[in-house]
Design a protein around this nucleic acid. Structure first.
Lengths: 165, 165
DNA sequence: CTTGGAAAGTCAACAAGACTGACATAAATT
DNA sequence: AATTTATGTCAGTCTTGTTGACTTTCCAAG
């Protein structure tokens, strides 16, 4: 928009402090709206955003262990345990003792868990799909690139990429 | 990356559910890392993220009223009031009675408030600047475009744009 | 000029979800 | 046999959000 090419010079207007502050605000508002859809659904349950996060990552990484989940979510085990206990008690998550290492608990969504995941996820996918569609593939590529750069390098491995067979 | 042009067809691979789920995870991780820098600074104070948000928006919109801030932050006045009271008591924020409407309180950062704002902001600007720089202007444009599309239309007005004189 | 309502501030109680610290159990590893 | 690892649990604290009730200030309409 405002960052046109300077005549005969390099365009660095997108690095001004004002542009950066706008980016900070964009992230703040977009993220809040983005999480508001599932939050509304969760109001009908005794669950919150913490449950949503656990459900999302168990869905994406079925069979993941508690420790791996702790690593991804970056919370304490006490905090995660409270969430998992509720989800297991309510029959949304199944915890299976590891075969190779029986200390480990491998986590899976039950049918009910998958149903809730689908509900929560579909609102966010819908919002993101509309945003992607309107912006176009090039913009989406830029969006992903900048987000990846914002992330700590050590966390980038946690974004699960589709593996082509 | 994975979304190459299909031979003779339209490229809609960036709209697959898997791509969308990756986008959801990118947003989650990037946003968390993005807020972790100021969070670390705030640990040295009795402040949290709520104080940071108030400081940020008072900095960007000096003289804004409590009501306008409530609209932007989307919290209850009781919640905001607790935060503002601390910041005012600690001499980081100044509350001035409105001239035209003396019920209104206009909020400003004091010198100390500006100092903390600068500390908090600089960590995020640094992270974002590096991310922008590496991704390039086109990617930044796409990043902003998608974030704007993700936002509720009614919130877009709240992202303060630089006014060219 | 009175009064209704808006803006702001305050008090109290509560809940979610994060935290720390301490401790328990089972299983794998050394 | 001793130690480490993975997990689970209890207890208490903190931040930050919530609702509800109430007061003060003060603009503006009748």
């Amino acid at each position: 928009m405002q960052d046109r090419l300077q005549p005969g010079g390099e365009n660095l207007l997108f690095l001004t402090d004002d542009q950066l502050l706008q980016g900070i605000e964009l992230l703040f508002f977009a993220y809040r709206n983005f999480t508001s859809d599932p939050d509304r659904i969760l109001e009908n349950y005794t669950y919150g955003r913490a449950h949503h996060r656990a459900i999302h990552f168990i869905h994406r990484r079925p069979g993941t262990t508690v420790n791996a989940l702790l690593d991804i979510l970056g919370v304490t085990k006490q905090s995660l345990n409270r969430v998992l206990r509720q989800l297991i008690d309510d029959g949304l998550v199944e915890s299976k003792v590891g075969v190779r290492d029986r200390r480990e608990r491998h986590l899976y969504l039950t049918a009910a868990g998958q149903a809730l995941e689908s509900d929560l996820s579909s609102t966010q996918r819908k919002r993101l799909r509309a945003a992607y569609k309107e912006a176009g593939p090039d913009a989406v590529h830029g969006f992903r690139k900048v987000l990846e750069n914002i992330m700590d390098p050590s966390m980038r491995q946690h974004v699960k990429k589709l593996v082509k067979d």
